[in-house]
Simulated scan of single mutants.
Amino acid sequence: MPAASEMALISNALAAYTFIADHPERAALYFVCGVCLGLVLTLFALVVQISCRTDCKSQSSKSGAEQVETNGDSSESDSDWETTSDLSARRHRRFERTLHTNVFTSAEELERAQRLEERERIIREIWMNGQPEFPGTRSLNRYY
């Protein structure tokens, strides 16, 4: 004879089946909402993990002398503010470094990329000028 927990499981499964059979649209909506919520939570966890990993690497690279805490004169909120502004300043500096870093390792690669960019610009210009102009409409193509 099955136990009470097994009977409850079977009863819940039958109730779920009858609900899905009676309301397929609502069941599909609940399923899609659950999948979307799971994706959002996974994305949030991934962003937090990457952010924490980046912050932990930058903090562990500091030397022990820089990690000396200030004396108790400053309040807790001031210390939090300094930490937050220091973190944002480090992120800004890191962003600035990536903007000014040359991604090309040789002059030939840089020249090839510039030629490719110029070729794409010419193709875009030819495509824009080749569009037909219909009577009664003004086209911006002639301004490019």
Rank of each mutant, 00 (worst) to 15 (best):
I126N: 05
R53P: 00
A89D: 06
T84F: 05
V68K: 15
Q59R: 12
L87A: 12
L37Y: 09
T54Q: 14
F95N: 05
E125I: 09
E118R: 15
M128Q: 10
E82W: 11
C33H: 11
T54W: 11
V35L: 01
L140D: 12
S77T: 07
P132C: 03
I122W: 05
P135H: 01
G136I: 02
S58E: 13
R90E: 04
S139L: 03
R119G: 01
C33G: 11
Q131N: 04
N129R: 15
S51H: 11
V103C: 07
V68Y: 09
S139W: 04
R91E: 01
E76A: 08
E66H: 03
F44L: 10
L46I: 08
S51N: 15
I50M: 13
A89N: 12
Q114H: 00
G38W: 02
C33V: 06
L87F: 07
E117V: 11
L43H: 10
R124P: 01
I50L: 14
G34F: 04
S77K: 07
T98Q: 14
N102H: 01
R53C: 07
N71I: 01
V48F: 12
A65R: 14
Q49K: 13
G38D: 01
V47A: 03
E82F: 11
C56Q: 09
T42I: 04
S58K: 08
R138M: 03
S51E: 14
W81M: 14
N71D: 12
R97W: 05
E108M: 04
T137Q: 07
D55I: 09
S85M: 15
A107C: 05
E69V: 06
L87M: 09
S60L: 12
F134C: 00
W127F: 09
C36R: 15
R115F: 08
L43F: 11
C33K: 14
S106H: 02
G64N: 10
V40R: 05
R115W: 08
E111P: 01
E76S: 07
L116R: 15
E120A: 06
C36H: 09
H100F: 11
V35C: 04
S58Y: 06
L116G: 10
L46N: 04
V40I: 13
C36A: 14
V103P: 04
S139H: 02
E96P: 00
S60K: 15
D80E: 07
E133Q: 10
W81Q: 14
E69R: 09
F44S: 08
P135I: 02
T101A: 07
L41Q: 04
Q67N: 06
L116M: 02
R90N: 05
W81A: 12
E82H: 09
A107Y: 12
T70S: 13
L46Y: 12
S85F: 14
Q131K: 10
T42D: 01
A65N: 13
T54Y: 13
D55S: 15
S60I: 07
L140N: 13
I123N: 06
L46V: 10
F44A: 04
A113D: 00
E118T: 05
P132E: 01
C36L: 15
S106A: 03
T101H: 11
H100I: 06
R94M: 12
E111C: 02
S75R: 06
T101I: 08
K62I: 03
Q59P: 03
I50Q: 14
Q59A: 13
P135K: 02
R53E: 06
V103E: 10
